[in-house]
């Protein structure tokens, strides 16, 4: 019964991955013959060229920011929208809708919001007499703009998960705490947070992994620019494989490094899952 699924995964995921690692030891542009170059691609990647480390750094900054803000906001909003009312449900639904929309469409709207000359944000800043910012064009701000869009797009989804886990906390525990007149913050830290921590940890891992794979939002909004201020690992691989003279071998080395990072995260994830099962 598992065979069909495993066949699909073997052909379309694992074979291409093995091929990726294999190609990373060659100089290869798809057309001319492969030339074995050993670890040269990795050396260039990590020690000669500076742009890969820049892309790696961007990816790490982006991932940490997305994870931090998504989880923080998801918890805050969940506590705030916890009460079951028509209005709260409506807000939850509204917050979930961006999750359903194609990144291509989202990017159009946000590019306009961030626009330097006629964008909504600078128009708002003008109202309060603040000089306009350059948003996506500013190399130190650009990555944060992408973070904002990513958080905006997926917050509603993670909010639902946190909400559901809040609702799974037995009422008696919360009521007991309320009778005790426990201050709100302490109630949250001492009682609620520990109760939902397995879900939060699950989110932490899944959001981290999906952040390391970020591609669409960067590709459509900045194409990695300005310079390479928003270049991330996946756009890097894609650019070298498809645009820079099809340097497939070199791009494969970059892809293999990404794969390695994802594997480390996966193993971390497994350890956690194993522990969770153990505790149950």
């Amino acid at each position: 019964m598992v065979a069909p699924a495993m066949t699909f995964l073997a052909i379309f995921t694992f074979y291409p991955l093995a091929n990726l690692v294999y190609l990373s030891f060659f100089r290869y542009n798809l057309i001319s013959d492969k030339v074995f170059v050993g670890l040269t691609n990795y050396r260039n990647l990590l020690f000669v060229k500076k742009d890969f480390l820049q892309a790696l750094e961007n990816t790490v900054v982006y991932s940490f920011a997305v994870v931090f803000f998504t989880i923080l906001l998801a918890i805050l909003f969940a506590l705030w929208l916890e009460k079951d009312s028509w209005f709260n449900r409506f807000i939850q639904k509204s917050m979930f809708t961006p999750y359903l929309i194609a990144m291509v469409s989202t990017a159009y709207i946000w590019s306009w919001i961030f626009d330097v000359n006629s964008g909504l944000l600078n128009a708002a800043l003008a109202l309060i007499d603040v000089s306009p910012l350059r948003w996506l064009n500013d190399s130190s701000l650009a990555i944060w703009c992408i973070v904002i869009v990513s958080v905006w797009k997926s917050l509603g989804y993670y909010l639902l998960i946190v909400l559901a886990s809040l609702k799974s906390i037995p009422r008696e525990i919360i009521e007991a705490a309320e009778l005790d007149n426990t201050p709100w913050l302490r109630k949250f830290v001492r009682i609620i947070l520990p109760m939902i921590s397995p879900q939060i940890f699950f989110l932490l891992i899944t959001i981290t992994i999906s952040s390391f794979r970020v591609f669409d939002s960067v590709q459509v909004m900045t194409n990695g620019g300005p310079g390479n201020a928003t270049d991330v690992l996946v756009t890097y691989v894609h650019r070298y494989a498809f645009q820079m003279n099809m340097r497939v071998g070199y791009a494969s080395a970059a892809g293999s490094v990404l794969l390695f990072i994802l594997m480390v995260l996966t193993i971390f994830y497994f350890r956690f899952l194993g522990r969770k099962v153990h505790y149950q």
């Binding site: 190399s139 650009a142 300005p226 310079g227």
Partner: peptide
């Protein structure tokens, strides 16, 4: 092009 983008658009170099 990427270097020029960093200078003119990114302005941190």
């Amino acid at each position: 092009k990427s270097a020029m983008s960093q200078l003119i658009q990114g302005r941190n170099i």
